[in-house]
Amino acid sequence: MSYAYLFKYIIIGDTGVGKSCLLLQFTDKRFQPVHDLTIGVEFGARMITIDSKQIKLQIWDTAGQEAFRSITRSYYRGAAGALLVYDITRRETFNHLTTWLDDARQHSNSNMVIMLIGNKSDLESRREVKKEEGEAFAREHGLVFMETSAKTAANVEEAFINTAKEIYEKIQEGVFDINNEANGIKIGPQHSPTNPSLPGAASSGGSQMSNCC
């Protein structure tokens, strides 16, 4: 499967907000009501098409528990997009958003696209966080906002694809340096033969990176 671009995502948020279920719904189109706790980081990939270009999304689904924070932090770097997830039926997951956001901003590259997601929108009866609150938080922090349901698949597709679109736009605008892999974007192998100088540049960029770190 050749692709034009590879985007790396990270899904973050409190434990039990449905991060793994979002990923499962997006990659496998199914919902698993009982899900073991994520221990470490899980991984999924899917191809999407934007602007008639094949884009591969590689998604790191991180563990929400505090104990794994040190592991998950190392994944911020190298992610082009982040889905910051809270549970609309649990107020505290919303309250922790600032912590998560600070963490993300601190450890990621500055251009990372962050999408705020209020998950479990199917459980309207148990809602604790209003949609407006989510919107307000997103506005305040310059995020894109969306309410989703991993169970009914509502907006799941959109959440991932809209993020990809945003990243794609930023690439077109030249905001992202696509030759720096630490940004979480990789040019597909099909592009290499047409532009032989590019991979060499990428390789040297990578080694420079290793030196400076």
Partner: peptide, 17 residues
């Protein structure tokens, strides 16, 4: 020490704590 990290040729993959 904290986990097993997995890599694909494209970069990082999953991680098992």
């Amino acid at each position: 020490n904290n986990a097993i990290y997995c890599y694909t040729p494209d970069g990082r993959g999953p991680c098992y704590a």
